Amino acid sequence: MTKKKTEVATLNNATPSERFTQAVIKEFPTGLSNEPVELTSFQKKLIQNYFIKVDAVLNEAEQKRLAKSENYRDAVALTWQNVNMNKLALDVVAYSSIGLDPLQKNHISPIPYKNNKTGKYDINLMEGFNGLELKARKYGYDVPDDVIFELKYSTDHFKSKKKSVDNKIESYEFEIQDDFNRGELEGGFYYQIFIDNPEKNKLIVLNRAQIEKRKPKYASAEFWGGEKDEWNNGKKTGKKEKVEGWEEEMFMKTLKRHCWDKINIDSQKIDDHLQHVLQSEAQSNDAEVQELIEENANKKVLTMEVDAEDVEVDKETGEINEDSDFQTLHNQAIEEEAKVTGPEF
């Protein structure tokens, strides 16, 4: 009993970082002897990285909460004391075991939102396209050895060469005619390469309409371009001028997410950690949730006080399908993935 009281006292006096680490370690599976599994240095480092990233996101979100007028400010502060630690610990166990690192670009991004049923903030971990690739390569079935991604502009020469009786290997022709004036962006494609069996090589082409079909219904104009809505005290006041956005980056990101998210999972490779991830993804894409959002999308403005069931994340693009202040918080993750501060593509 004394030992248990000492442990509780120690935990109560621990820093947020220490409590977070202990909560995560507690959720790691035990060995055959029912003793805690010794974490590798890599796993410990990843746990620390999740804390660093979530802490930074919470601090920025809390500053935005305090910047609002009291009429529109959520009463619950975005602090570690108000985070659903059990859910976060379980998710960190799963994603860190897969190898996703929140401090690596486009691996995984934490998005906090208010769960009114619990009165706490849940931390949603959104996979980036590099995270999807890592997961696909570790757990996928028939994963390509390499993938070539390209955007197609109106002046580029492109011709697909589909597999047929006379053509055993699917391929394509692609040539940039004018590097400095490629014309209008028309779409993109990716080519999956299987080195030991090139007859399995596969070309996937997505035109503009097919890519825009995967654009969230309430996509942010800062990223996709177009007209940006103007808001004042939680109400839409009108349209601002058109913004250019980062359309190229959004098209390329959509191609990459489409590629790696389409890789089938090898059932023989599924472990407890992946099972947890798959269950979380299934819950976030529940059909009833989608129907609810479609019904209310134009009827209410979401603030940080959001029900967990009221948030829809588009699987193809990773963006949140809502017009709200919550979108601004989510943009932080998208900026990193889209390389807004220094485009990768």
Results as ranks from 00 to 15, higher is better:
V277T: 10
A23Q: 12
G238L: 04
E38T: 15
L78H: 01
G245L: 00
E309I: 14
G187F: 02
V243E: 00
N207T: 08
S41C: 06
E305D: 08
L90H: 12
S69V: 03
L32G: 11
R182I: 01
L39K: 08
G99L: 06
K68F: 04
K138P: 00
V92A: 10
T341H: 09
E295N: 12
Q332Y: 11
E38H: 13
M1C: 07
E244K: 07
K253H: 11
I176H: 08
A282P: 04
N13Q: 14
M252D: 05
G187R: 07
D91A: 13
D323M: 02
D142L: 13
N321D: 15
F194N: 11
N124Y: 13
A219S: 10
L132Q: 13
N331Q: 08
P198R: 11
K215Y: 02
A333K: 12
Q283P: 05
E241Y: 04
H273F: 11
M126R: 06
E186K: 15
P102Q: 09
D166L: 10
T30W: 11
Y72M: 02
E27Y: 15
Q332L: 05
K163Q: 12
L78M: 13
D325P: 00
S267W: 03
C259L: 03
E62F: 00
Y218C: 09
G245N: 03
Y191E: 06
F149M: 07
F42Y: 12
K299N: 11
Q104D: 10
L274Y: 05
K239M: 09
